[in-house]
Amino acid sequence: MAGYHQNLDQQQAPAFFARGPSPLARLAFFSALSLALMATDSRLQYLGSLREHLMVVLQPLQLIANAPSMLYESTNEYFSTHHRLLNENQLLRKQALIQAISLQKMKTLQLENTNLRELLQANQSLEEFSQLGEILHVGRDPFTKKIVVNRGSVHHVVEGAAVVDAKGVIGQVTRTYPASSEVTLITDKSLTIPIQIERNGLRAIAFGHGRDNTLDLPFLPANVDIKPGDKLITSGIDGIYPKGLAVATVTNIQTTPDSPFARIICVPTGGIENHKQVLLVSISQLESTNSAVSTNQTTENTGTSVTAAETVKAPPMKASGQHKKITNGAPVTAIDSSTPNKPNAQD
C-alpha cells in the first residue's frame, strides 16, 4: 500500500492529488484526538457541561426529526372515534374515584405517621418532588436501554432522579440536558437498584440484565428465602429512590449444585416499553440529607450521597439550614428508622 502511494507521490503531483497531510498523518492525529476525548469523557467527567451546551444546538434538529411522528400522532388523535373516547373517559373517571378514596385514606395515614414519628423523635420521612415527563424517543444506541424524556435541567430535573410510571420504577435519570434528559432503564446492564423483598423485608441489589428486559438478583445464597411471585420494592436506603415503589416480580429461581449462589430472575413491574408519560421523582433536600445522615454520621456539612451533593449544590443556604434542624432534632440513636425492624440476613 505504501509503495503504491510513494509511486504516485514521486510523479509530479497533479492538482487533484494535492490533499494536504497524508491520510496516515490525519488518521494518527484524529485517532489520538478521539482517544483523548474518550478518556476525558469516561474517566474525568469534564465534558458534561460541554455536552449540555452542544445539545442546545442539536435541539432544533431534533424538533425537525420528531415532527413527522408528532404529526402522525396528532392526526391519529384527532381522528380517534367518539366511542373510544367515551369508553376511555368512563374508565378514567372510575379510576379517579377509586384513587381519590385511597388518597384520602393516605392523607390521614400520612398525618398519623408524621405524628408518630415526632413522638418517637425519629427522622421525618420524605417529601418527594415529582413532575410529569413525556418520552421523546428511545435511546439511539440499540444495545443500551435508555429513553429520552422531554424534561431537562430547565425544569429542575437533577441527575439521579428516579423515573416511575403508574405501576413501578422504570429507571433513573443519568444525564440532563437543558430541555431533555436521558433515562437509563432498570433493565440496562449498567444500572443497579437497591431493593427489598416485600414479603420478608430482605434487602438486596437488583442488576439490569441488559438483554431480555429482566433483572438479576446476584450474590444471594442458594438457600435464600425468595420465592417466585415475590414482589421487589425499592428500599430507599440509597437516598435516590423513594421508599416502597414497586420494581419487579420474581419469576424464576435456579440453583445449581456447583454454585453457592442462586440465579434469580425478575420481571419489571413498570411498563418499560409501553408508556408515553412517565413521572420524574426527585427527593427533596430534606430527604437526601436525611438519608445521608441515616447511612453515615460523617455528613455534618457535606452530603455524602450523590443526590445530597447534587441537590445541596442548587440552593446551599436552604439546604444547610434544613440540615441543621434535622440533626438537632434527631438523636443519633434513631438513625435507621426508615428500614424495617425485622432483623435482616442480607444487606
Partner: peptide, 22 residues
Amino acid sequence: WVDLATGGVFGQHALAYTVTTF
C-alpha cells in the same frame, strides 16, 4: 456530533469514522 446524539462516550464514533474513512 453523532456521539452527542447517541449519548455514548464522547469520541467513539469519531474514532470509528476516522478509521473507516482512512
